[in-house]
Amino acid sequence: MVDVRHRNRRNGATRLGRALALAVLMLPGAASAQDVALTFDDLPAHSVLPPGETRLGVVARLVAALADAGAPATGFVNAAGLETRPEERAVLEVWRAAGHPLGNHGWSHANLDAIGADVFATELVRNEPVLQSLAGDSDWRWFRYPFLAEGQTPDVRRAARAALRERGYKVASVTMDFSDWAFSEPWARCRSKGDAVGMARLETLFLTSAEEALTASRTQSRALYGRDIPYVLLMHVGALDAHMMPRLLALYQARGVRLVTLEAAMADPFYDADRTTADGPGPLSLETAAAAAGLPRPARTDVQSELAGLCR
């Protein structure tokens, strides 16, 4: 089950709008493959670290696993921490040296629904100098909403979209998510206690949740459109993510996944509204599309309670 902090989604899509989207998706030339784009939020620093870990070590293991799998990825930056921890810029440099682009995740990871559209626009611009300084010839004008919060009212949503359009951004959608962020604190607890049983359980739950997310996204996409859209997977630069990345990528590739760039995935007509930052009735996701069509949500294991109790 997706936690509300990372799934602040409203079921606001109209049936008429969804019918039009479905018509577009069925046009000749619409992508039809089990493609997945990997995206990582919260660079350069996500959550707590286990004893002996460093931010630089985490990102080095992540990019090594991505390289071994030939997997492209996009990372989304909150640059506020660099003011007090300038050494963490090295994390972003390692990411870029591996050839992966960076995007904007808001200066301080502030929730649009808490700060309002005016402060949102300020946070957007304040994050840009770091991105520009590291981008080279890569496209850094992708934006991922912190907490996936896109505005609880039409006015806030429209104002935020207008700010993004004015700055030339595309919205980085999310169509696959297994709340990997929720594993970070339990992993640090289990590591600090040397709890081998707890760590093994976390590894199992991580892979199980990831596979369920793939199945759920495919089930919704096929029910809605009769095909696999290219999926955009939300992850984070956490210590357990780095530890599990080789096994996760091997799992997905064994399931027939082809790992593609964010740009390639979002070229699909499904993502037109986010790629053009168009105004719309609600956030774009498979969940909102399925809800608008009256489809049931695929079954997912709720691991949150178990995660909260592990290694206490």
Rank of each mutant, 00 (worst) to 15 (best):
V48M: 03
P129G: 07
A200K: 03
L202C: 14
A79T: 10
T288C: 04
A250W: 07
A265S: 07
R189D: 07
P230S: 04
G75C: 05
D180A: 12
R227M: 04
W142K: 13
L43S: 05
A65N: 07
A65Y: 08
R141N: 12
A289E: 11
L148I: 08
R222C: 07
P283K: 01
R255Y: 11
E87S: 14
H236M: 08
D3I: 15
A160H: 05
R7Y: 13
E93W: 00
A31V: 14
V125C: 10
A250E: 08
S217N: 14
R300Q: 12
V232K: 00
A163D: 04
S217Q: 13
G106A: 05
T204C: 15
A182K: 11
R300P: 09
A13F: 09
P101R: 01
E150P: 01
L62G: 09
T301M: 03
M235A: 15
T277L: 07
V171D: 11
T208K: 15
E212M: 13
A182G: 10
A31G: 10
H105D: 05
A149N: 02
E211I: 15
S217R: 11
A33G: 02
A188I: 00
L310W: 00
D241L: 15
E203T: 14
V171C: 09
D41R: 01
H236D: 12
G106D: 02
E150D: 00
T261A: 09
R5F: 15
L259Q: 08
S192W: 01
A278I: 04
T204I: 15
V77F: 01
G294W: 06
L202D: 13
L249Q: 04
L262T: 12
L20H: 04
R158G: 00
Y225E: 13
L62Y: 08
R247K: 10
A135E: 13
A60C: 12
A71G: 06
A159G: 06
P269A: 02
L240Q: 12
A265E: 03
C190Q: 01
A37I: 01
T14L: 05
V303R: 08
L20T: 06
E88A: 13
A80I: 14
G194F: 02
P86E: 12
L284G: 02
